[in-house]
Design a protein around this nucleic acid. Structure first.
Length: 602
RNA sequence: GCGCCCGUAGCUCAGAUGGAUAGAGUACUUGGCUACGAACCAAGGGGUCGGGCGUUCGAAUCGCUCCGGGCGCACCA
């Protein structure tokens, strides 16, 4: 049952009866300091009531109290009508949540979407920025899934081009046949090492040539290592077997390394796309656009799209030598995906906000090519992650490596767990598993509690905190409830929810109301579905993260104020156990959307 | 130069389509474990919501303007 919707309907009935108006009521949660749970803002009704705000609010309140079974009492502060919901109604709300095993999962809506995330540069190991990207993308996919969508998680792997050839060239020159297996170095780290080596070498060679009097431009082209890389690119395009072999081998190393990192992150993909497989389709589409007069060719042979009518510039789509650019590849990839999954109605691209312009252009181009789904595509644009020292810069060595960071978080979780003396009767494997859950939970929560659109600061000292507004705080609340449920089970306390609800309804007159904190928590639990919808609408896991924190905090307050097992009234005791169980389930579900596990003890 | 984003407590962040005395966390000062788990709870101080003007019964939220910070505008990806 949807309490808010019912309430809204009742209020509308009241205002229609009283003032003969169809102004939609404005409902908001009541401020802590006043009694009640729902507040109607009555200022908008003063126009039709022809009375002051307080009088207007009082009239609506009186009408509701006499005519609606939902409201037990009300109070008026200025133009605000604060409503108290009947406890029997609260219990009914609770009952329907408790007995609904799939609470928090909306039924299938028959819609299908695709979410792209990660899509790293294969020459560079994953770093902190990728963690935000992956966690956000994965979580948004889960959020849509919980909203009833059929979701496909994908990524694009940028596996062709000169940058790949750079690490290949460096490895060929200086690698001495080094392999991940032989050196024990993770595949992506090994390839990254040669990419850096290329750059170092390239700069040295340029300097050498310049000292011999070659111009800077000349030196950049003449540097032997660059010539080798360019040569490899040409050979690659001509499908030279030896080059292709090396390309495959080194890419394989990278993929193996990434797979390891993804696994620990807890993210996955249904299908991987490779640029080497999509850029030709992009080229075809662009040529088709030229034939249809959508794009135009310049004298030098390059192909352009004119977006000045849309308030943007002209944009190149094919170079004068006929090769494709970044945009061309993305056009091809998008179209291929809609061919592979004909039922999807949109694609969500999880990519940093520095590429906002790129996606604006991409969607316009796709629309010009006649793809109606183009206007449904969405760039899930997120802000950069800064360090206390400022921006991450590879040149200054301030890049925070994803593998290292996850490892440090887990180690810190382990250290703190042991320091708090929580590991008493745990097996060593259990401690390891728990540390993983806590460490990654802390990291994921830290990165996802902030609005994705905003640039954020990653303070290492703060991120490893396990108290306060953190993932472990919520995990702890969950573990605590599990402990209560274990105790209840050991005392063989059986919950019969229908009986409890009936009892509450019949004893209401016996003056056994709910505690205000209990009402508030039912209110929050009942809010979950709305938050779920909001999170999808806003593409924001932060909505879920902050909701879970608020719920956990509310429960902890209740827990501390009301000792459950000292309650002598068996019905109340049972209610509170059932109530705790519901909170635990919702916390688990919400955290699950963030990819954060919750432990039964910690 | 043109375009987009951001500015809320010392610090990190919330603030539903404009609504009540702007909220959390952290840090700091206190108090609470013989109890269902103290990774918790309670209390306190801490704010010109970057500045100004405007719209409105009502502005952190909308408009204009200035200041400060970030990003983009490649035949790079």
């Amino acid at each position: 049952m949807n309490l808010d919707l019912q309430l809204r309907t009742e209020i509308q009935k009241a205002t229609t009866a009283l003032f003969n108006t169809d102004i939609a009521p404005q409902l908001q949660p009541t401020n802590q300091e006043f009694e009640g749970s729902h507040t109607v803002v009555c200022f908008p009704f003063t126009k039709v009531s022809k009375k002051g705000p307080e009088e207007t609010a009082r009239l609506i309140g009186e009408y509701l109290q006499t005519n609606s079974g939902l409201i037990s009492k009300f109070n008026v502060v200025k133009g605000f009508l604060n409503l108290s919901i009947n406890d029997a109604v609260w219990v009914k709300v609770f009952e329907s949540i408790y007995s609904n095993k799939s609470y928090g999962e909306l039924p299938s809506n028959g819609k299908e979407i695709m979410v792209e995330y990660s899509s790293p540069n294969t020459n560079k190991p994953l770093h902190l920025g990728h963690l935000r990207n992956n966690f956000l993308g994965w979580s948004v996919a889960e959020i849509f899934s919980a909203n009833g969508y059929n979701v496909h998680k994908v990524q694009i792997i940028n596996d062709r081009g000169i940058h790949i050839c750079k690490s290949m060239a460096a490895w060929k020159l200086f690698g001495n046949g080094e392999t991940p297996h032989g050196s024990g170095l993770k595949g992506d780290k090994l390839v990254g090492k040669y990419y850096v080596e290329f750059d170092r070498r390239y700069k040295a060679e340029i300097k050498e040539l310049e000292e011999k009097g070659v111009t800077k431009e000349g030196a950049e082209k003449e540097a032997p290592i660059m010539k080798l890389a360019v040569d490899m690119l040409q050979k690659w395009e001509q499908k030279d077997s030896e080059t292709l072999e090396l390309w495959k081998t080194m890419n394989g190393w990278v993929y193996d390394g990434f797979a390891f990192t993804y696994k620990r992150m807890g993210v996955d993909f249904e299908k991987l796309y490779y640029e080497s497989e999509t850029y030709l389709l992009g080229k075809e589409e662009v040529m088709r656009g030229v034939d249809k007069g959508i794009f135009f060719k310049k004298d030098d042979g390059s192909v352009w799209v004119d977006l000045t009518a849309d308030g943007l510039d002209q944009k190149v789509l094919l170079r004068s030598d006929g090769t494709s650019v970044y945009m061309t590849q993305d056009v091809g990839t998008a179209i291929l995906r809609f061919r592979d999954f004909p039922k999807i109605e949109k694609q969500v691209y999880t990519v940093g906000n520095e590429q906002e312009y790129h996606f604006k252009v991409l969607f316009l181009i796709l629309a010009k090519l006649g793809y109606s789904w183009a206007k449904e595509c969405y760039h899930l644009s997120y802000g950069m992650v800064d360090l206390p020292s400022g921006k991450m810069k590879s040149r200054e060595g301030t890049v925070v490596d994803a593998d290292d960071l996850m490892e440090e978080m887990v180690e810190e979780a382990s250290r703190q767990t042991q320091q708090l003396g929580k590991t008493g009767e745990m097996h060593p494997e259990e401690i390891i598993k728990l540390s993983e859950i806590i460490g990654l939970g802390a990291l994921k929560f830290f990165l996802m509690k902030v609005d994705p659109k905003k640039r954020m600061l990653f303070d290492p000292a703060e991120s490893i905190q396990l108290q306060g507004h953190t993932g472990p705080f919520i995990q702890y609340t969950y573990a605590r409830i599990c402990s209560i449920l274990r105790k209840a089970a050991s005392q063989s306390i059986q919950i019969d929810i229908a009986q409890l609800a009936a009892h509450h309804r019949s004893t209401e007159s016996l003056n056994q109301p709910l505690e205000p904190m209990e009402r508030e928590i039912i209110f929050r639990v009942n809010q979950y579905v709305q938050k779920l919808e909001e999170a999808a609408r806003e593409y924001s896991p932060a909505v879920i993260a902050n909701y879970a924190f608020d719920l956990a905090k509310g429960y902890n307050q209740f827990y501390q104020a009301i000792p459950i097992f000292s309650e002598s009234d068996v019905t109340k005791l049972k209610f509170r156990i059932a109530f705790s169980e519901v909170v635990a389930n919702v916390l688990k579900k919400a955290m699950g959307l963030l990819g954060i596990e919750v432990p039964e003890r910690m």
